[in-house]
Design a protein around this nucleic acid. Structure first.
Length: 556
RNA sequence: GUCCCCGUAGCUCAGUUUGGAUAGAGCAUCAGCCUUCUAAGCUGAGGGUCGCGCGUUCGACUCGCGCCGGGGACGCCA
């Protein structure tokens, strides 16, 4: 494939460096696609890198290297692959590949079939990606939607690049927020039966609590205020938790996110486990008592202040069970633990890393990823959200309005550490300016041609390639060949957004090809070779869309 | 106050990790292209002091320092 050609050229350059005499430190040689098409297919800047230490003009160095390479053009690794070597202005060495080289790339891609795109660069590394992990105290919001899309696709990409990755949802079903949830449902139930209650600000404000109160009263056959008061607050909590877990599971199902593991705080971070872990930390000297509370010395590990783990009222803070949970994650044999978090958890990472260090774990095996917010725009105006006032846009509203395909794709379009503008009107539009439809349309178009070629002309894709040489054909092969590189880029950066860009580029190159090259043509040879080319495009589009969790329609 | 992120075309963003060629794309605007495989497509044009200044360098959108502007985080909340 293209990577192999690059590798061969890389080695040839390295050998050619011998003509320059003694080189104190040989730099990493990079062979990349040049910025401009006129500069050829591949370029190397090694002459520029060397000019300083050799105190020679880069153009001159490049010239010497080119001379050495020219002598090798008729020899095997380069023969029939590189057609010319050129030296340009500041000192770049540019390579032009032969059409035959690209035809052999296409043959390799066809050989890989459905597996095209998969790499081994992860070397079997085991990765646990924890994401969403919403408290069961309300439906999922657009913020969760972005985290869900990113986490889900990241795991797909990791698994496609030689990692063993799993999706994990951690349910914070213990502690304060569940008590508050129970109290919220209880008070709304009291209201249902005519009581005037002073609804506290720290209770959940969303309208869904009212709905839950009604459902609970129906289920429990509560018919009066006295009956409502006779029910223990724990029952309200228990109902609230299981009801909202069902809501969350359904939200995720609609968004096509399926978790491999569900971990429950109530099972992992039991009071005994918490005490045991805190005792361990105390024994190591990282826990101390002050003002009636227990503090964790996170400052010893780079945090900017120490953190309370057990409050003076005897309740644990969120940190205590989270330390236990991370200890548990470490114990499960993963090489990398990825925590995908919302921007409000910015300060959380140093704390949990400090805890990992205090427990003697490898801090580098823990990666915290902050996913910035998605702001929703409709009619050109930003929709405001305020969790405190219970005004939020739910994941379900987005999915209902724009669909799962567009919802997922739009959530992935920007780098994860950047805020994202989600244009509802654009996402709904079935028009070319909507990138999702642009990509899906390319896939559907190809299906149409393949079907038509088979049914009406009796043509099947070629297995050998002799004629493909036109610019649009080679451009399409080049773009397809980049697919594995983009997947590696996503995996390395723990960010799926480059894949969305790649898919748009691939669709664009295909649409241009379609416009200029007729597939079903008089010449049967060229027709069947082009059929193989568009079939490779189809496979690549389908594989990419599958990783993104977006459907690949066969007709539109 | 402390810390973090951001500032690139009218708009939304790539490019910055590892400094190199003429700073790219989509949308929007304008002008074109369907008797032929899906026009949900294609082609062309206009549009830039890469926030500002200084520094390092043969070379800075990219690195360093200082400003200006925008956003966010800083609880015995999670």
């Amino acid at each position: 494939m293209l990577a192999r050609i690059r590798h061969d050229i890389n080695i040839e350059i390295r050998l050619a460096l011998a003509v320059l005499g003694e080189i104190p430190s040989v730099p990493d040689i990079s062979v990349e696609a040049p910025a401009f098409k006129e500069h050829g297919d591949l370029a190397c800047n090694v002459a520029l890198q060397l000019s300083k230490q050799l105190k020679r003009n880069p153009l001159e160095i490049a010239g010497s290297i080119k001379a050495a390479l020219d002598l090798r053009l008729a020899e095997l690794p380069l023969k029939g692959v590189v057609s010319s070597v050129e030296v340009l202005k500041p000192g770049f060495i540019n390579f032009r590949l032969t059409p035959g080289a690209y035809r052999s790339v296409l043959k390799d891609i066809r050989f890989r079939g459905q597996d095209f795109g998969r790499t081994n660069s992860g070397k079997g590394k085991r990765v646990l990606v924890e994401f969403v992990s919403a408290n069961p105290t309300g439906p999922l919001t657009v913020a969760h939607a972005r985290q869900a899309a990113v986490g889900d696709v990241l795991v797909n990409v990791l698994n496609a690049t030689g990692h063993y990755a799993e999706r994990e949802f951690y349910v914070n079903d213990g502690g304060n927020q569940i008590r508050t949830l129970g109290k919220s449902v209880q008070l709304r139930t009291f209201e249902l039966f005519g009581a005037t209650v002073d609804y506290p600000e720290d209770c959940y404000q969303g309208g869904y609590i009212h709905d839950m109160a009604k459902i609970f009263a129906d289920q429990k056959k509560i018919a009066s205020l006295d009956a409502a008061k006779a029910v223990a607050v724990e029952e309200y909590s228990g109902f609230g938790k299981s009801y909202l877990m069902d809501v969350i599971r359904e939200d995720l199902r609609l968004f096509r996110v399926k978790f491999d593991n569900w971990s429950f705080e109530s099972e992992i971070a039991t009071p005994e486990k918490i005490e045991e872990t805190l005792e361990d930390l105390r024994h190591k000297g990282f826990i101390y008592e002050k003002e009636g509370a227990l503090w964790f010395k996170s400052t010893q590990f780079g945090d900017d202040k120490d953190r309370v783990v057990k409050k003076s009222d005897g309740f644990y803070t969120y940190l205590a069970p989270d330390i236990v949970y991370h200890k548990y994650k470490y114990s499960r044999g993963f090489d990398l633990l990825v925590d995908i978090l919302g921007p409000d958890h910015h300060g959380y990472i140093p704390r949990i890393k400090a805890a990992a260090a205090a427990l003697g774990k490898d801090v580098n095996a823990l990666e915290g990823l902050i996913i910035q917010l998605a702001t929703i725009f409709r009619d050109g105006k930003q929709l405001r959200m305020s969790t405190r006032a219970g005004e939020f846009i739910s994941l379900r509203e987005v999915v209902t309005e724009v669909g799962t395909d567009a919802g997922r794709f739009f959530m992935l379009m920007r780098q994860v550490n950047q805020q994202l503008e989600f244009d509802i009107d654009l996402a709904k539009k079935q028009a070319p300016e909507n990138p999702v439809y642009y990509i899906q349309y390319a896939h559907a178009r190809i299906h149409r041609i393949l079907d038509k070629a088979k049914d009406e002309a009796g043509l099947l894709p070629a297995e050998d390639f002799l004629k493909l040489a036109q610019e649009e054909e080679l451009d399409l092969i080049k773009k397809i060949a980049q697919f594995p590189e983009f997947l590696d880029l996503c995996a390395k950066g723990l960010d799926p957004s480059p894949l969305t860009r790649y898919m748009q580029e691939l669709a664009g190159v295909f649409h241009r090809f379609y416009d200029r090259c007729r597939v079903i043509d008089e010449d049967k040879t060229i027709s069947s070779e082009r059929l193989a080319l568009i079939d490779a495009t189809r496979v690549t589009l389908a594989n990419g869309l599958k990783l993104l969790g977006v459907t690949a329609p066969e007709k539109m």
